[in-house]
């Protein structure tokens, strides 16, 4: 998901209006491949190249996807997944930025907390779901916690290394103009760390959907993860693939939105 967005962005930065037409042509190539593959899928199902109850034609999947728009469980499932992912993402990111800056700035806190964090970090997030179920149940609390945990680490590690990488010249500049520590933190350290924070947020964005869906597959009775598993049991491959399609669309849109917001709010990334 993120790779597609990034490549698109790179080819676009070099573009000027007189090259717009050429650019659309370039983009069409990529789109063409997708269309060819989808046509092959369609034909393979229609013409019986693949004989399987789990291989519906693309048009059947699209029909199911559109049908869900009119009413069905899927959009509700998607909404509850997104709600949990969003809450978990925000909680994990805020804690990650705050702790990253505190630990980046304070040696004492670093010595006290970093070993603990470094021990927790390598644990694959899904591995802690079963024990956590015992404490948090199978509903929102578990999933929001798991998503926060997953988004916390990339944000935290990027923030702390971003703080560490701030050039001393920048801090001394604030000192020579006799700027107090609080204003130095807010108007120098924070913006100087923002490119690193953004990189962490971006990694976290793609992780949150993954972890949210995964957690829903393992535990609970709502959300896209649960829905996918249910449709698998119900032998409804069309709805199953339609759910995957919706997740792909959402993931793609999130990534595009991230690129747009990044260019708008952190335009100096890579410029210093």
């Amino acid at each position: 998901m993120s790779t597609i967005g990034t490549i698109g962005e790179i080819s676009r930065t070099g573009a000027r209006t007189n090259r717009a037409a050429q650019l659309i042509g370039v983009r069409l190539y990529g789109l063409l491949l997708i269309l060819v593959l989808l046509s092959l899928w369609e034909l393979s199902a229609r013409l019986g190249w693949v004989v399987s109850a789990y291989w519906p034609p693309v048009t059947a999947i699209l029909r199911a996807a559109v049908g869900e728009l009119a009413g069905g469980d899927m959009l509700d499932a998607l909404a509850s997944t997104l709600r949990r992912a969003a809450i978990g993402y925000i909680v994990g990111s805020v804690v990650g930025v705050v702790l990253g800056i505190l630990l980046g700035k304070s040696r004492v806190l670093r010595l006290a907390l970093l070993p603990l964090i470094e021990i927790i970090r390598p644990i694959p997030t899904p591995a802690v779901i079963p024990p956590l179920i015992l404490f948090l149940g199978v509903d929102d609390a578990l999933k929001i916690f798991i998503v926060s945990l997953a988004s916390f680490f990339p944000v935290f590690t990027n923030t702390i290394s971003g703080v560490a990488a701030i050039d001393d010249t920048l801090i001394q500049t604030a000192r020579t103009f006799r700027i107090g520590w609080l204003r130095t933190l807010v108007s120098v350290v924070l913006p100087a760390t923002l490119p690193a924070v953004t990189a962490g947020l971006r990694t976290a964005t793609s992780l949150t959907l993954v972890v949210a869906v995964l957690a829903e597959m393992i535990a609970g009775s709502s959300g896209m993860g649960y829905y996918l598993v249910q449709m698998q049991y119900a032998l409804r491959p069309d709805l199953m693939y339609a759910a995957v399609l919706y997740l792909a669309i959402v993931g793609y849109c999130l990534n595009r939105a991230f690129i747009v917001l990044e260019a708008r709010f952190v335009p100096w990334i890579g410029k210093t």
Binding site: D167, T169, L170, Q172, T173, V188, P191, A192, L194, V266, W268, K271, T272
Partner: peptide
């Protein structure tokens, strides 16, 4: 006034 103006100016 720092030698490394690029690191002394605020890019944002």
């Amino acid at each position: 006034l720092f030698q490394q103006y690029a690191k002394s100016l605020f890019a944002w």
